[in-house]
Design a protein around this nucleic acid. Structure first.
Lengths: 197, 197
DNA sequence: CGCCTTCTTGACTGTACGGTCAAGTACGGT
DNA sequence: ACCGTACTTGACCGTACAGTCAAGAAGGCG
């Protein structure tokens, strides 16, 4: 939906986005109705459909924004890193931090990855992230910092650690202290630095 | 629902369980209707409600069975292991292998962990698994095999690697060869063996 | 075979939902 | 103030859904 919006329109659209993000994350996408969303911000149902073609279109918009924001964060965290391993470490940290700060967006991306209607776009975004991380891992291998192995597979494993840790933090089972994040980063760094014989 | 069933009844109930497992995993729990399930096995809607009180009850039954089966598998894999590290390694392998062999059950457990109606039971089961793994990690630390750190946090990180890898295998992005599984096990073993300074 | 118990059918019920759109209101510019 | 455009309302529509249950069929046993 490429409607030109006034500032007022943009504000209303953002209000819908924000409320839906929160409610979808809390209750799930499917169990959350359009009626509930409009009621939550005190508008009529037609407002919803002025801005979004469908409930799915709303979620897509949320997902696109979230993934763009995360990528921006990772990129800016790596600026100034001097070695591949430093870039990897900064990338992992930035991801974890962004995810901890945006629990709802994080949760919706995870949901979308598992739902056949939404997974395609999300997987594409994740593939980009994996390839970027793998390139840094490859650089670290070429520089002799770590032993050779499949860089994409290692990148995926780091993402597994990150994802799970963030889930735990959101569940309140783990605190998002710097010690915990250091431990996760350490686990990953040592995981890619070691090697089965 | 504690209905006593004949053999014929057990067979019908199992048919419902099996079909629903597959369809829920493929389409999602919410987007799958009871009507679709009964149509899938060619019975009337009343059959469903003879065996299960609700759609939710059906999913709960699936989840309970899956988690019980996985626990059994892990336990039997560790029989005969002589060191804590060996037990850890066998446990990780058994989990990955079970998950690869039961993609649908795995997927439903993941879904359930994220849905507020189902997450309580699933989290309890996962807590048991984490505690068990942490006890082995603790043993390995006490035996001087690995440096000291928070054993439950390390157990969680290993679970993150396992979960993510299994997702990738189910998506066809990674093959479930023994090399890949070895790499994941290696990543975890080195992840817990290393240490941030 | 008759009887009792265990299933099985599927029409029905009430509720909920995503989406539509004619009529109306608000806003911004001249 | 007027006009045109950008929103906004909410009744409505058709469809879908989870769950109910009276009537019937099937199976098992004596």
């Amino acid at each position: 939906m490429d409607r030109k919006l006034t500032q007022r329109g943009e504000e209303r659209r953002n209000q819908l986005l924000a409320f839906a993000t929160s409610r979808f994350a809390q209750k799930g996408f499917h169990p959350t109705s359009v009626a509930e969303i409009v009621e939550g911000i005190g508008v009529g149902k037609g407002v919803f459909y002025w801005y979004f073609d469908s409930k799915e279109a709303l979620l897509q918009a949320i997902l696109v924004d979230a993934q763009r924001d995360l990528r921006r964060r990772q990129r800016s965290a790596m600026v100034g890193a001097e070695t591949p391993m430093e870039r990897i470490e900064r990338g992992v940290r930035a991801s974890i931090q962004w995810s901890v700060e945006h629990p709802e967006h994080f949760r919706l991306v995870q949901f979308a990855a598992s739902d056949e209607r939404f997974s395609q776009g999300v997987h594409k975004g994740q593939q980009v992230a994996v390839r970027d991380a793998a390139a840094h891992i490859d650089d670290a291998m070429a520089a002799g910092e770590i032993p050779k192995a499949d860089p994409e597979l290692l990148a995926q494993m780091m993402i597994g650690v990150h994802t799970h840790l963030v889930h735990l933090i959101h569940q309140g089972l783990v605190e998002s202290t710097s010690e915990v994040i250091d431990a996760a980063v350490g686990f990953c760094i040592h995981g890619i630095s070691g090697r089965t014989s």
